[in-house]
Design a protein around this nucleic acid. Sequence first.
DNA 1: GTGCAGAGCCGCAATTTTGCAGTTGTGTAA
DNA 2: TTACACAACTGCAAAATTGCGGCTCTGCAC
Lengths: 207, 207
Amino acid sequence: MSQLISLRDRKRTETWAALHDAAARLTLENGPDRVTTEAIAAQANVSARTFFNYFGTKEDAILGLQDPSIHDSWLAAFDVDADLLDQVSRLLVQVVHSTEGGADGDSLRMEVVRRFPQLRQRRFGYFLKVEQLVRDVLTEGITASAKWADVARRHRAEDISRMIVLIAGAPMRYAMQESAHAPTLDNQFAALSTANALLREVLPEIQ
Amino acid sequence: MSQLISLRDRKRTETWAALHDAAARLTLENGPDRVTTEAIAAQANVSARTFFNYFGTKEDAILGLQDPSIHDSWLAAFDVDADLLDQVSRLLVQVVHSTEGGADGDSLRMEVVRRFPQLRQRRFGYFLKVEQLVRDVLTEGITASAKWADVARRHRAEDISRMIVLIAGAPMRYAMQESAHAPTLDNQFAALSTANALLREVLPEIQ
DNA sequence: GTGCAGAGCCGCAATTTTGCAGTTGTGTAA
DNA sequence: TTACACAACTGCAAAATTGCGGCTCTGCAC
């Protein structure tokens, strides 16, 4: 019973959470610059070296950011031949969401971001990785799609994907810039849907 | 600060204690035969395999027995040319004590032994290892001692040590047999000092 | 008694954690 | 300015943990 996930995976998750929690907690107490990776590791009861096995930078730990990854089920649901703007932006949202650690209701993270908005910048860096991932998926889809065969004859699939992801990602960038100042969950959602509507309105005009 | 021992050593000690604690606790609840190594490992939050990295047998874990080892300071204090009976039995006591985990006031172990005296047998097995260790030390001492050079000319140092350890260990064996029935700390000490006195009385008579 | 399941225990390879010795960049006291 | 401490971060090898397959033994249903 309760062997749904291996002990190894469970412990890895626990360690990740312990580090993020320690980082966020200590940051709230002392501010991000007065917290050392060493202190975080000590608080999480692991070595300083292990800290960097889990997070690339101190800020990632504070924010609980994970390397973006694409879940199989998202891939299965992805359809190049459907409304691409919709498909791609959905995938972008999913992957971006996957970079923000397990628990959504992580009030610690929200509090940290509220108090130290500078940290928010890190998300933009992550967004580049997210785009790369989604681009790869899209490129593969386009290459295999009959619908795109024509365009693909005049442009490389990589370039087509790059352009589409840029367009479909515009609302997310918009929302990130917007909510950087007042980074609450509500603000993010609001900004994103505003941006989506905006994009839909702008697109026909420029075609 | 507080880096007196390495994180590695501290964690090793903690894991050892967690396993012993889990083993003893579960044994008290269910009896030694109704506890599995797997349950102990789960309770201690490590894998079943790790259990056997720490303890050779389930009983060792329940009793908190460690492989005997000789501390450097004991070695330094050991003097072949002093009263050997005293020296050797002191060393035996120290090493035996070292096989019974860190915390002395481990009421859990005492309670377990009180409730399930069968477990006590395991100690006799350990005593053999303890004797072996002490014999090695003694052999080396005798080999290097001028005082023993004469006897060592007629007998192998190993054999001399064996005999001495047997004699010096008699009180401990006596005490272990005695206290097997009523295994409290007081009983052990009492039995040991009785046995020591007894030995001292008997020896002159048989020489 | 025969088969079989459960539990103790071990060997080994894969994964994770740790220690340690760097390198780099930055603030700051001399 | 120079010197230097300190903190972020990395590479690498040693140690610890895990998963897994396999072995043996014992009790129990058949």
